[in-house]
Computed example of a mutant assay.
Amino acid sequence: MSDVGSVHEHSPRPPAVHRAHVVLDLGTSRTRSLSLDGFAIADRPSAVVVPSPESAAGMPVRPIRRGMVVDPGACLRLVHLVLQDAWLSGGRPLEHVMAGVPRAATGSDRQAVRTAVAEAAGCEVTLVEAPLAAAAGAGVDIAGPGPYLVLDVGAGIVEAVVVSGGFVTDAAALQLSATTSAGLLPDALEGVVEMTAGLLRRQPAHLRPAARANGLTVTGGGALQTRLLDRLHTVLRTQVTATPEPQHATIRGLLRLCLRPAAPVIAL
Score class of each variant (00 low, 15 high):
A121V: 11
R110V: 05
L174S: 15
P131K: 13
A143M: 12
G91N: 06
T169L: 12
V168W: 02
G144C: 13
G166C: 03
D141T: 11
R110W: 10
V101Q: 00
P102W: 04
V153P: 08
V150H: 11
A173D: 06
V162I: 11
S164M: 14
I157N: 05
A171C: 12
V150S: 07
D152H: 09
A155K: 10
A116H: 02
P145F: 13
G166L: 03
V117Q: 04
R110K: 11
T115K: 12
V150E: 05
A118T: 09
A120N: 07
S108E: 15
V128F: 01
G154F: 05
V158N: 04
L174I: 14
V140R: 05
V161L: 11
D141W: 13
V117P: 08
T115V: 14
A172T: 13
G90C: 12
A105T: 03
A134S: 15
A104G: 12
F167D: 15
I142N: 01
A155C: 10
R92D: 12
A143P: 09
L174D: 13
A121N: 10
G146A: 15
A120Q: 06
L151P: 10
A120E: 02
D141I: 09
S164W: 07
G91Y: 02
R114I: 08
D109C: 06
L88Y: 09
L149E: 08
V153H: 06
G100K: 00
R103T: 05
E124A: 15
G100Q: 00
E119A: 15
Q111Y: 13
G154M: 10
C123F: 04
A138S: 14
D109A: 08
A105E: 05
G100M: 01
G122Q: 03
V163C: 08
V140W: 04
A172P: 03
A138R: 05
G156T: 13
R114K: 13
A134I: 13
A172N: 09
A171K: 03
V97F: 01
R114N: 12
P93L: 03
L149P: 13
S164L: 09
V150G: 07
T115Q: 15
A160G: 13
A121H: 09
G91C: 01
P102Q: 06
P145I: 11
E119P: 13
S89W: 07
P131V: 09
A130W: 00
L149F: 07
V113E: 04
A143H: 10
A105F: 05
A130H: 00
L151I: 02
V140F: 04
V101S: 00
V158K: 07
V140L: 07
V101P: 00
A171L: 06
G137L: 06
P145Y: 11
A116I: 03
E159A: 14
T115A: 15
D170E: 08
G100H: 01
A155F: 12
V125Q: 00
T126N: 12
P145W: 11
R92Q: 14
E95V: 08
A173H: 06
V161A: 12
G154V: 06
A138D: 07
A171V: 02
P102K: 05
T106P: 01
T169W: 04
G90F: 08
Y148M: 14
V162F: 05
E124C: 14
G144A: 15
D152G: 04
E95C: 14
A120I: 03
